[in-house]
Design a protein around this nucleic acid. Structure first.
Length: 221
DNA sequence: AAGGAACGCAACCGCAAGACG
DNA sequence: CCGTCTTGCGGTTGCGTTCCT
């Protein structure tokens, strides 16, 4: 782990900025996933590969589906958790578009809490027992709702539009988001939306925009 | 209208497993 | 066969937002 040695700048931590998201999304779109450490370096992100991977998997991937957990998903989570325990990544594979982190959070905040209160988690939803099998093919179903990060002008995320005030990031064309905007590549639409929302006054957008050619060159679909 | 408490989500940390040299 | 590096997973923490008193 001798990294380059000398001018190893401090690794950034904390919330991701829009610029970082753009860089990461673009880089992955062009070069694909994997080799996160070198990716982080090559992309010029002062982030650990680990952090980049997490950000990509949990947020930037085009097939990430956001929004409320549906009753069906709730049932499935309960059932699979009962079967496999806290194997969140495994459970997540049966919930297209959902990330292990999201499921984990959901479990802890909703289900586990209910159980902790003494009531069965099934207070609201009783697992029907009808083996709800979600096939991979369902992942191609429309991405119903998503959220866009609400970046602060200073470059620091200010929080995310949550279910109380959904921002307008909606899967395009009734599901095309699930397949990615470009073949092999991805084009997180909320990033574009963020750019649009930021407007001309946004800090240095124009400075780094040219550095992400594949995004603003429209991927030539 | 202000303050406090609770909730939800994103991100970080540490550990383990697998792959490669 | 051993050692090192990278990736993946699960648990935990902190921050921001919303709701209630």
């Amino acid at each position: 782990m001798q990294d380059g040695g000398g001018e190893e700048t401090a690794v950034r931590k904390g919330p991701w900025t829009m610029e970082e998201d753009l860089i990461l999304a673009n880089y992955v779109a062009v070069n694909g996933e994997g080799d996160w450490n070198s990716l982080a370096r090559a992309a010029g992100l002062n982030r650990t590969g680990k952090s980049c991977r997490l950000r990509w998997l949990n947020y930037l991937r085009p097939d990430v589906r956001r929004g409320n957990i549906t009753p069906e998903e709730h049932e499935l989570i309960v059932e699979l958790q009962g079967r496999w325990g806290n194997r969140w990544s495994k459970i997540a594979r049966h919930l297209p578009g959902r990330t292990d982190n999201e499921i984990k959070n959901f479990w802890r905040t909703k289900i586990q809490k209910k159980r902790g209160e003494g009531t069965s988690e099934s207070a609201g939803y009783q697992p029907a027992g009808t083996a709800l099998v979600v096939t991979e093919s369902q992942s191609s179903s429309s991405i119903s709702l998503g959220r866009a990060p609400d970046y602060d002008v200073g470059g620091q995320p200010r929080g995310w539009g949550d279910h109380h005030h959904q921002l307008g990031y909606v899967g395009h064309g009734g599901g095309s988001a699930g397949g990615g905007a470009c073949d092999g590549g991805v084009l997180p639409e909320f990033l574009q939306a963020a750019v649009v929302a930021a407007g001309d006054s946004f800090w240095g957008l124009e400075e780094y925009w040219p550095t992400v050619p594949s995004l603003h060159e429209d991927c030539s679909l």
